[in-house]
């Protein structure tokens, strides 16, 4: 793709939810081409922030601006992946991966090619299952199909809304490896409540602390991502994160 992965600037972001202030004058710069993790406890408001970045909140819901470094809007540059794989049960794995063609009613020329989808799905280990329906797949395979759909969109920014939290431990570890491999070079913004997952995958971790979020504490892990979670320096950083997160409880 021609897009160079640029930074995402969030400026003076204010958001209230059910008359409760969640974000107040919150500014953050998410680095382009890196794996950014927003870490926070459940219900802290990290999901709302991600939705705002994705352009899913109507502008009247929040104040502030979310733009790329060159000031352009983010819309049309984003792919999104959630905890729920959101596959359509009546379509096969291949058709689900290519659903974007149908939804955008693209002409033959602009459409994502069948060949490209097949080869990506094969790389993800789904070749024997191309014509199967999601019902007969395991949670991990469904999430891999969702990953293929996300990657085929080929946008420079990928937002991950706790995509691994419904998976079992082994599948989750496999998905970590795959996702980390395939999303290299893209601007990734992932939200999670799991410090270990954050430490394993991230280039930069932003800790969001309630009740009213004004700024984020940043932690840059000392080594390159896809770290071994048994690494001693990682465990030390894990301690630090746990402490920061439990601080937020004391505040609320």
């Amino acid at each position: 793709m021609l897009h160079t992965a640029g930074d995402i600037h969030i400026q003076n972001f204010c958001l209230s939810y059910k008359e409760k202030q969640v974000f107040e004058n919150f500014s953050l710069c998410l680095e382009g081409g890196k794996w950014n993790v927003l870490l926070g406890r459940s219900g802290v408001g990290k999901s709302s922030l991600l939705k705002a970045i994705a352009g899913l909140l109507p502008p009247s819901f929040y104040k502030g601006t979310i733009k790329t470094a060159d000031g352009s809007s983010l819309s049309g540059q984003i792919s999104w992946m959630t905890q729920d794989a959101l596959l359509l049960p009546w379509l096969s794995v291949l058709q689900n991966a290519l659903i974007g063609n149908k939804l955008r009613q693209l002409s033959e020329r602009d459409a994502i090619s069948d060949k490209q989808a097949r080869s990506l799905l094969s790389d993800l280990g789904l070749e024997p299952y191309l014509d199967m329906k999601p019902d007969s797949l395991s949670g991990g395979m469904r999430q891999r199909t969702a990953l293929a759909r996300t990657l085929l969109e080929d946008h420079p920014i990928v937002l991950l809304d706790e995509p691994f939290s419904a998976l079992d431990a082994i599948t989750r570890a496999e998905m970590h490896d795959l996702t980390s491999h395939y999303l290299t070079g893209k601007t990734v913004v992932m939200i999670t409540h799991d410090p270990l997952e954050a430490l394993k995958l991230s280039d930069i971790i932003y800790v969001l602390k309630g009740p009213v979020i004004k700024s984020a504490e940043t932690l840059t892990p000392s080594s390159r991502p896809l770290r071994n979670i048994k690494d001693s320096s990682l465990l030390q950083e894990h301690e630090v994160l746990m402490k920061q997160l439990s601080d937020s409880k004391a505040l609320s």
Binding site: L56, G76, S79, W80, K102, L103, R104
Partner: peptide, 20 residues
């Protein structure tokens, strides 16, 4: 979640109606 995904994927409303 599907409505959100359709919006992010820039789906045409009519196509979204028919296919989803």
């Amino acid at each position: 979640d599907w409505q959100a995904l359709a919006k992010v994927m820039n789906a045409k409303p009519m196509a979204f109606l028919i296919h989803v």
